[in-house]
Simulated scan of single mutants.
Amino acid sequence: MRLLADEVERQKQAEALAEDLISHALSFYSVNVAAVQPVVQAPAETADSWLVFTHEGVFRLYLQDATENTSTVLQVWQHLVNQGFSRLAPLLPASHGDVCVSLGGRLAYLAKEVDGRPCELAVQADAVEVGRCLGELHILSRDLLFSLQNALEHSRAAEPSLAVQREDLELFRTMAEHRLYPTGFDRLLIKIFGEAIRFADQCLEFLAQLSLDGIENSPCCSGLLLEDYRGRNFKVDVHGTVRLSLIRKVTWGPCIKDLAGVLDLIGERTDWDVAAASRVLDAYQDVRALQPGEQELMYALGTFPSRVWQVCCEYYKGRRNRSEPEAAEMLCREWENQIKRREYWQLLLGDVLGYENST
Rank of each mutant, 00 (worst) to 15 (best):
V352I: 08
L347K: 15
A196C: 12
L189D: 00
D213P: 04
P93A: 02
R307V: 00
V130C: 10
E336S: 01
R333E: 00
R60D: 13
G302C: 10
Q310K: 06
K112A: 08
Q149Y: 09
N32I: 06
V81A: 05
S278Y: 10
N233A: 09
V52S: 00
A14E: 15
K235T: 09
S161N: 13
P118N: 07
L212P: 09
G194I: 05
L204A: 10
A276G: 12
L21M: 15
E9K: 10
A122F: 14
R322Q: 10
A14S: 15
Y299G: 06
L137W: 04
N337P: 03
F146D: 14
F193T: 06
F172H: 01
A275P: 07
E216N: 08
S49W: 04
C133Y: 04
D228W: 05
G267R: 00
V36P: 02
A47Y: 11
W77Q: 02
S95W: 03
A200G: 03
E356V: 09
C312A: 07
S245D: 09
V39G: 13
R243C: 15
I266D: 01
Y355V: 04
V130I: 11
S30W: 10
E159S: 15
Q165S: 14
R279G: 06
I266W: 06
E314A: 11
E167F: 09
I192Y: 00
R198F: 07
V31R: 06
I215L: 11
V287D: 01
S323N: 08
V73N: 01
T46Q: 12
L204P: 12
T54S: 10
S278I: 04
L263I: 14
Y29M: 02
F304M: 07
D258C: 11
S323A: 11
S155V: 11
I197S: 03
R279N: 08
V236W: 04
K257Q: 12
C332M: 09
R248I: 06
K235N: 09
H24Y: 12
A275H: 14
K317T: 02
A328H: 01
L145G: 15
A111H: 01
Y62P: 05
L51P: 02
V130N: 04
R132Q: 13
T183F: 03
T270I: 14
Q75M: 05
A158G: 05
K112C: 08
E136M: 08
V8S: 03
R187T: 08
E9D: 09
G84C: 12
G57Y: 13
H96Y: 09
W252T: 15
S323P: 14
N357V: 03
V40D: 13
V8C: 01
N32M: 03
R232N: 10
L145N: 15
Y229I: 06
N150L: 14
V280L: 15
N233R: 08
N217V: 05
P43C: 07
L169C: 07
S30Q: 15
N32D: 11
A111I: 07
D65E: 14
Q346F: 04
C133V: 06
